[in-house]
Each structure stands twice: as structure tokens, then as C-alpha cells.
Design a protein around this nucleic acid. Structure first.
Lengths: 143, 143
DNA sequence: ATGACTGCAAAGACTTTGCATCTTT
DNA sequence: AAAGATGCAAAGTCTTTGCAGTCAT
């Protein structure tokens, strides 16, 4: 029993918003971004559609950063960098993932492996310079 | 200004609990596990100490699985497998991570890379067999 | 018309935090 | 005694959900 999916202006706008950016937005960001053009948009609708898109496999979750789930409009496998300072998420398209790795792990461990993810953590350039010019008064938010 | 850290029976118990298991527990699991032996333990204390251990670098977060943050008592880099069906997190010690990768990414993208993580997603053995023997009445929780 | 989609607001789930009290040093 | 650590419960965040009204087919 597949549930039918109808057209919806809001849904289209939400998907476009995610695809139009590379910041790997949160639900809240999508909501705030669309609010000016869609004043009657509801946050619940954003969550419901993000969830739907994920099920359809047309977007993917990058994980939870600082308490908020972040999404990627590009569903094909690629690596990410996450800044522990400002929470920025960026694509590392030049880092290739080996699709064959899934199969070899599956065989080695007896698991059903669907996909894998390679994520790097550190400080982005903006936060690096920010750190240097900062006087050491308070402890930084960066770990 | 470093803040001093004193000994505490609860803290010790919490760290031991994490180190004694390989299930990559959540705060709630630690709390429930220690409750019998430490009836006056508070969930807040568990959270506070997990946070402290992370800052000290003696445990690491494996990320948020089904809404709960999961921790790893082993802080040295290694790969993980996460079951999308039951949420199980397991170590893949045989999958080696290349420490040199951090530096090469740092140079290539101009970032300060501290570490990276390789995570596989799929179904664990228990969930695989569970799926097969299940009649297709209700949709499965597994995606 | 029917079934999907949405807004709204309430409810849920997880985590953080303020404050008085108890511990460690 | 001083500074940490904890219990308790309230508050905070983010996300999910029930329901009545709206929209697409």
C-alpha cells in the first residue's frame, strides 16, 4: 500500500530551498528562508516534507549538528566537513568514497550495508582566523 | 583558568559503565544501568559527566541515533556501523582510518581538520533475519 | 467528492540548568 | 572552610502529532 503523493506548492518550495543552497540547512533555516515568500508556512509542514523527501531518497540527512538535524539536497554519496566552532557543514566533493567498501564490509562482518559516510571535523577558515584574533578572555565555543 | 576536577564516586561509576560495554550507550542507558547500584543517581549528573568526559577527550560521541546521543568509551579513531532498524551501534575495528587523510584534506581545502569518522549504515544480522521472517502487515520501522 | 496536505498548537523526547545540599580536599 | 559535585525539578530545544480546515485530482 503506497500512499499517493500529490502536488503541493509548499512542498515544491521546500525542496527548491534545500537544493538552492549548499549550507546543508536545518528545518528551522528552511522555515525562516521561505517565510517571506510563504507567510502562512508552518514549521510542522517543513518537518513533514523533509521527512518525506528523506524517505523518497531525494535528500539525505547529514546528521545532528549542535542539536539540529542538517540536510543535504544532494543525495549522492560524498564527504562532509563539519566545523565544531560555528557548526558549518560543507561538501568535500573532491574526497571520493569507494562504493565497493560497503560490500567488503558486509562480507567481512556479516551485515547488510547500505551506504557509508566519511565526515571530517575541525575548524573552518572563518573560525580559524576568528580564533587567532580573539583575546583569551572567555573560553571559546570551539572545543 | 582551569577548573579543578575532584574525585567523585558517581563519576567513576559512570566512566566505568561506559568502558565496560561496547554497545555505545546513551545517557539514559548509563542512568538505568547504574540505578540499581546507585539509587540516588540523577540523570543530570550523567549528562554533566558525559559532557566532561568528552571535553577531556576520554570518551567520544558517535552521533545521535534515533534522537539519542550515543557515546564510545574508546576515544581512539575507528569506524562504526549503525543499524537503521534497531539503532545498534557497533565498532568496526578492522576498518582502518588513515590519520594522514586529515592533513591532506586540510591542505586541499584550507581547513583545520582535527579528525574524521567513517560510518556505515544498514541492517545488523538480528534485524536482517527479523525482516525475513516478518509478514508484511505493518510497515517495518526499518527504512 | 475523496484523500492528501497544511496551520496551529499541544504534546513528546531529550538535554540543560538553577539552586540548595552534600562531598572532596 | 572553600570549591566541586549532585539531586531535583523546572526550563529549554528541537521534533512530532492530532485535528479541523484547505487543496489537488
Amino acid at each position: 500500500m503506497e500512499r499517493a503523493t500529490r502536488y503541493s506548492k509548499k512542498r515544491e518550495a521546500i525542496l527548491n530551498a534545500i537544493r538552492a543552497t549548499d549550507i546543508h540547512p536545518s528545518a528551522e533555516w528552511v522555515y525562516q528562508t521561505l517565510k517571506p515568500t510563504h507567510p502562512d508556512l508552518s514549521l510542522g509542514t517543513v518537518y513533514r516534507n523533509l521527512s518525506l523527501f528523506q524517505q523518497q531518497g531525494i535528500i539525505q540527512s547529514v546528521g545532528v549538528v549542535n542539536g539540529q538535524e542538517r540536510f543535504d539536497g544532494v543525495a549522492t554519496p560524498h564527504s562532509h566537513f563539519i566545523c565544531r566552532c560555528c557548526g558549518a557543514v560543507m561538501d568535500l566533493h573532491r574526497v571520493k568514497l569507494d562504493p565497493a567498501l560497503d560490500r567488503s564490509i558486509a562480507e567481512e562482518y556479516g551485515l547488510a550495508v547500505e551506504r557509508h559516510e566519511l565526515t571530517f571535523y575541525g575548524s573552518c577558515q572563518a573560525c580559524m582566523t576568528k580564533e587567532q584574533s580573539k583575546m583569551p578572555t572567555k573560553e571559546s565555543i570551539c572545543v
